[in-house]
Design a protein around this nucleic acid. Structure first.
Length: 809
RNA sequence: GCCCAGGUGGUGAAACUGGUAGACACGCUGGACUCAAAAUCCAGUGGUAGUGAUAUCAUGCGGGUUCGAUUCCCGCCCUGGGCACCA
C-alpha cells in the first residue's frame, strides 16, 4: 500500500513494456478518418559525440505530450524519429583519429537513441531513418537527379563563399556576418566549379505560399527578408560612342533625372570592354585590390567608399546627359545586374560616394516642391518630382508608374523584380556526404548516373583529409572516379563533390512515411494517408536554412507530381533555448552544461520532462534551475502519495472538488491546444493536487481523471498509478477525460468594489446578479460607505460578474 | 543603421476580449515531528510606514486615452535575435 516512488524501476518497467508490446507502432488504419490523423514531427538531431543536450528533450517532450494527448482523444498519431547523420564533425573526427566517419556516427547514433529512449518518448521506432545509410541516400541522390533532369541543378564557375578552416565552399545561408556559420572563421571568395540548385526559380512561390502557413510570424518574416523581393525597373544606358549598353536595376526609376554617374561592380564583364587604355592600369589595380578583400572587408559598413573612374561615359536615356561610369565594390556583382545608376541626392550610399569624389548631386524629389539649399544627406523618402522635365509635379508612385511605361514604350527599360535570394551552392569539397550521382564525359558532357545504379555508394578512402584545392578526397580514388559514360560507353569521370548536410534533411519527413520502400522514396498511398505534416517543432535557428531548403525541394517534388501538397509543414512551433543555471548560453567552456543522463539518474525522466515543461512557455528562452527541478519531483511524489497512502472512496466527492477537477481538465486541455503553455497546465494540476492533499480520503473518480491528465507529461508515472488503481495498461489507450462546462463556472464569485479605480472591498455574490443590484450591494457596504460618505458620487460603473467602480469627487 | 521579439518580486513565471497585479513553483524565515538531521506537514514572504486593522508606492523610463492600463496610443532607454552597402 504505502510503496515508495522508485522512478528508476518504474521507468525501466514501462519502457520495456512499450517496446515489447509495440504500444506506439503506427499502422495506416484506413478506418480512421483523415481529420483524425495527425503527423507530428520533431526536427531530427545531428548525432554529435557530445550526446543529447537538455535543449533536445524540450521540443521532443512538447511534441510527445501533444501526441499522447491526441492519441487519448482518438487520433491516429504519427510520431517518428531519426538522425541527420552526414556532416562535418564526424569527418573532422575521422581526420584526427583515422576512424571511419560511419563508425563514429553509428556509435553516436546508438548513444542518442539510448538517451532519447530513456526519456520515454512515444516514437514509432520501426520508422527510424538515418540520412547516411545507403538505402536512405539512394533517394536523396534520386531527388537530386530529378532536379538535374529538370534543369534546376546546374554547374557554374563563380566566386563562392569558401571557408578556409572547413576547407569547403558553403552556401550564402551558411555565412553569418562574413563568417562561417559552423566555425566562425572569415569567409573568402573563391572562384570554383560548383553545383548549384536553382532555388531562385521558386522565389515567388516560396514567398507567396508562406502567407497561409501557421508558423511563428517571426520565422515567416525572416524568410521573407531572406528572399528579399523588390520591385523596380530595369533601364538600359548606352555607353557613349559604342553599341554597348549597361543594364541597371533600380527601385527608384522616378529618380532617373538625378542620375549623375553610374557604377559597375569590379567583376562586371563590361568593365574591360569599355575601359580606354589611359585608365586601364588604375582600373585593373582597383579590380585586383577588391578581389583580395574578404567578404568581411567588403561589407564593413563603416569603411570609406572606394572606386575609380573607368574613363567611359554613359548616356542618361531620359535627358541625353553624359555621365561618368565608375567601378566600385559597393556595387555587388551578385545582385541585380551588377551595375547601378547612382542618384546621390536620393540614396545615401551614392551621396557618400559623390561627395567623396566630387560628383554632381542633383535633387529630383522634394517633400514640399521646393529645392534644397544644401544637402547634408540623401533625401530617400517619397515626394514630388522636381528637375525632371515633363514629369515635374508627379508624386513618387505616379512617377514610377509613368516613367516605367515611358521606358517600356521606348524599348529601353521595363518593370523588373529582383531577389536577395541567390541560387544554392550545393557542392561540398568534403568526404562525409552523399556523392553527387553524375558523370563527366568528354563527348556527352555531364550525364546522370542511371537510376537503376543508385545508390551511388560512398567509397572507402585512405585519407579523409580535404585537399583544400576544391577537390574532395574522393578525387584521389582512381578506380572509383574513372567510369564508363552511361550514354556513349566512352571514358568518363565521376563528380567528386558531395552534397551539403542540408540535403538529407530536405525530405526526411517523407521517408518516415515509408522507410523500407525500395521502389519509391515513399508510396503515394502512405503520403496521402499522412501528409502534410500537421505540427513541426524545432529550434528557430533553422529559419532560413533547413526550412527554406526543404520547402524548395517539396515544391519541386510537387511540380513533378511526386507529392500532393505545395507545402510540407502546416504548423510550425519553435522551442526556446535553455540557458545554463547562470543565465548564460550552455557551453563546455563555461562549464554550465547540463547532461540529461545525470538528471534522469537523479530525478528520473518524468521529472525531467515535467520540469522542462514547467520552466515557462515553450517558445521562450529560459534558464535551467536544478532547484526548480526538485520542485516538480516533489510534485510527483505528492501525487504518488495520493495513490498509495490514502484510503480510497467510491463515494461522490464534495462539490467543490468536482468543480476544481472539471476546471483542471478544461485548463489542461486548453493549454495543450495552445501548443505552448504547458507550464500553466502543470500549475493547474498542482492546484488540484494541493486541494486533494488536504482531504482525509481520495476519490476513485478524481484520481482516475488526474492519472489521465498527468500521463502525457509523465508517462511512466502515469502508467504506474493507472496500474495501481487496478486498470489494465496502457494508459495511453485510455480516453482523455471530458469536462462539464456547467461545472467549470462557479455559482458565486467575488465582486470587486473599487473607489476611483482602487480596490476597497470585495463581496461574494451569486453569478448573474443584475448590474443594478451589484451597484446597490456595493454602495450599501459599510466599508464603501466610509470611503464615500464625505464625497460626491459622480458615477457608478458596473461590469456584470466582475466589479463595481465608484467615481467620487 | 534597419527589421523582429521581449523588459512584471530575491528567482522561473501568471493575469481570459482593458477590470482584484504577482496564480503555480523555487528560494528564504519561523514553527511542528525528531536525540539530531533528511523527508514531510503548517504559517509567513513585492517595497515602505505601523504593534495592528490599514495606508501608500509598485509591471524598464516619460507622457497620453479611460471610471479603470502589465494590457491600447506616442516618445525614449535596455536586453536578446535576425539582416547588414541588396540599388
Amino acid at each position: 500500500m504505502s510503496r515508495e516512488y522508485v522512478f528508476a524501476e518504474i521507468e525501466k518497467k514501462w519502457q520495456k513494456y512499450w517496446e515489447k508490446n509495440k504500444t506506439f507502432k503506427t499502422p495506416e488504419d484506413k478506418n480512421i478518418p483523415k481529420d483524425k490523423r495527425f503527423y507530428c514531427l520533431d526536427m531530427f538531431p545531428y548525432p554529435s559525440g557530445a550526446g543529447l543536450h537538455v535543449g533536445h528533450p524540450e521540443g521532443y517532450t512538447a511534441t510527445d505530450i501533444i501526441c499522447r494527448y491526441l492519441r487519448m482523444k482518438g487520433y491516429n498519431v504519427l510520431h517518428p524519429m531519426g538522425f541527420d547523420s552526414f556532416g562535418l564533425p564526424a569527418e573532422n573526427y575521422a581526420i584526427k583519429t583515422g576512424t571511419h566517419p560511419s563508425e563514429a556516427t553509428h556509435a553516436n547514433i546508438d548513444n542518442f537513441r539510448r538517451q532519447i529512449k530513456s526519456l520515454g518518448f512515444s516514437y514509432d521506432w520501426d520508422r527510424e531513418i538515418s540520412t547516411c545509410e545507403p538505402d536512405y541516400y539512394k533517394w536523396t541522390q534520386w531527388i537530386f537527379l530529378q532536379l538535374f533532369k529538370g534543369g534546376l541543378a546546374y554547374e557554374a564557375n563563380i566566386p563562392i563563399n569558401w571557408c578556409n578552416s572547413c576547407k569547403t565552399g558553403i552556401a550564402n545561408e551558411e555565412v553569418n556576418n562574413g563568417r562561417c556559420d559552423r566555425c566562425g572563421e572569415p569567409v573568402v571568395k573563391k572562384d570554383m566549379r560548383q553545383w548549384m540548385l536553382r532555388i531562385t526559380a521558386y522565389a515567388d512561390r516560396l514567398l507567396d505560399d508562406l502567407e497561409p502557413l501557421d508558423w511563428p510570424e517571426s520565422i515567416k518574416h525572416l524568410q521573407r527578408n531572406w528572399i528579399g523581393r523588390s520591385e523596380g525597373a530595369e533601364v538600359d544606358f548606352t555607353v557613349k560612342g559604342t553599341d554597348d549598353s549597361v543594364k541597371v536595376f533600380t527601385t527608384r526609376p522616378d529618380t532617373l533625372f538625378g542620375a549623375t554617374y553610374m557604377v559597375l561592380a569590379p567583376e562586371h564583364p563590361l568593365v574591360e570592354k569599355i575601359t580606354p587604355p589611359n585608365t586601364k592600369k588604375a582600373v585593373d589595380d582597383y579590380i585586383a585590390r577588391s578581389r583580395m578583400k574578404s567578404d568581411l572587408e567588403r561589407t564593413d559598413l563603416n569603411k570609406d567608399k572606394t572606386g575609380v573612374f573607368t574613363g567611359a561615359y554613359a548616356v542618361n536615356p531620359v535627358n541625353g546627359k553624359e555621365i561618368p561610369i565608375w567601378i566600385s565594390d559597393y556595387v555587388l556583382i551578385s545582385y541585380g545586374t551588377g551595375a547601378i545608376m547612382a542618384v546621390p541626392a536620393h540614396d545615401q550610399r551614392d551621396f557618400e560616394f559623390a561627395t567623396k569624389f566630387g560628383i554632381d548631386i542633383i535633387q529630383v524629389v522634394s517633400a514640399d516642391g521646393k529645392l534644397f539649399d544644401k544637402l547634408e544627406c540623401a533625401y530617400e523618402s517619397d515626394g514630388i518630382a522636381v528637375n525632371s522635365g515633363e514629369f515635374n509635379g508627379l508624386t513618387t508612385p505616379e512617377f514610377k508608374k509613368s516613367i516605367t511605361e515611358w521606358l517600356e514604350k521606348k524599348g529601353i527599360g521595363k518593370l523588373a523584380v529582383n531577389y536577395k535570394l541567390r541560387d544554392w551552392v550545393f557542392s561540398r569539397q568534403r568526404f562525409w556526404g552523399e556523392p553527387i550521382p553524375l558523370i563527366h564525359c568528354e563527348k556527352c558532357g555531364t550525364v546522370a548516373v542511371l537510376e537503376s545504379e543508385l545508390p551511388l555508394i560512398l567509397p572507402q578512402v585512405k585519407t579523409y583529409q580535404p585537399t583544400g584545392t576544391g577537390e574532395s578526397p574522393l578525387a584521389a580514388i582512381d578506380d572509383w572516379v574513372n567510369v564508363k559514360c552511361p550514354e556513349c560507353g566512352g571514358p568518363g569521370k565521376r563528380e567528386t563533390n558531395t552534397m551539403p548536410q542540408w540535403a538529407g534533411s530536405c525530405w526526411y519527413y517523407l521517408r518516415y512515411l515509408d522507410p523500407a520502400n525500395e521502389k519509391e522514396f515513399a508510396s503515394r498511398d502512405k503520403q496521402d494517408y499522412w501528409m502534410p505534416v500537421d505540427l513541426y517543432v524545432g529550434g528557430a535557428e533553422h529559419a532560413v536554412l533547413h526550412l527554406l531548403y526543404s520547402r524548395f525541394w517539396h515544391k519541386f517534388l510537387f511540380d513533378q507530381g511526386f507529392v500532393a501538397t505545395a507545402e510540407p509543414f502546416m504548423k510550425l512551433r519553435n522551442q526556446g533555448i535553455i540557458l545554463g543555471e547562470d543565465g548564460q548560453k550552455m557551453s563546455k567552456s563555461r562549464g554550465n552544461v547540463i547532461n540529461p543522463d545525470d538528471i534522469i539518474a537523479m530525478f528520473g525522466a518524468d521529472s525531467m520532462r515535467l520540469y522542462e515543461m514547467f520552466m515557462g512557455p515553450l517558445d521562450v528562452m529560459k534558464p535551467w534551475s536544478t532547484n526548480g527541478l526538485k520542485g516538480v519531483y516533489k510534485f510527483l511524489e505528492k501525487i504518488w502519495r495520493l495513490y498509495t497512502q490514502f484510503p480510497l472512496s467510491e463515494a461522490a466527492p464534495p462539490d467543490e472538488l468536482v468543480r476544481l477537477t472539471h476546471k483542471t481538465i478544461k485548463k489542461v486541455q486548453h493549454d495543450l491546444d495552445s501548443l505552448n503553455n504547458f507550464n500553466t497546465a502543470i500549475s493547474q494540476m498542482m492546484i488540484l493536487v494541493n486541494e486533494l492533499t488536504k482531504m482525509d480520503e481520495q476519490y476513485t473518480g478524481i484520481l482516475s481523471v488526474l492519472a489521465r491528465l498527468i500521463a502525457p507529461f509523465a508517462p511512466h508515472f502515469g502508467e504506474e498509478i493507472w496500474e495501481i488503481m487496478g486498470n489494465a495498461p496502457s494508459i495511453s489507450n485510455a480516453e482523455w477525460p471530458k469536462y462539464d462546462e456547467a461545472l467549470v463556472i462557479d455559482d458565486s464569485y467575488v465582486m470587486v468594489v473599487q473607489v476611483n479605480g482602487k480596490l476597497r472591498e470585495s463581496i461574494e455574490i451569486p453569478r448573474g446578479t443584475p448590474v443594478e443590484q451589484m451597484k446597490e450591494t456595493a454602495l450599501s457596504s459599510s466599508k464603501i460607505i466610509k470611503w464615500t460618505e464625505n464625497s460626491q458620487i459622480v458615477k457608478v460603473i458596473a461590469v456584470q460578474d466582475k466589479l463595481v467602480n465608484i467615481v467620487i469627487k
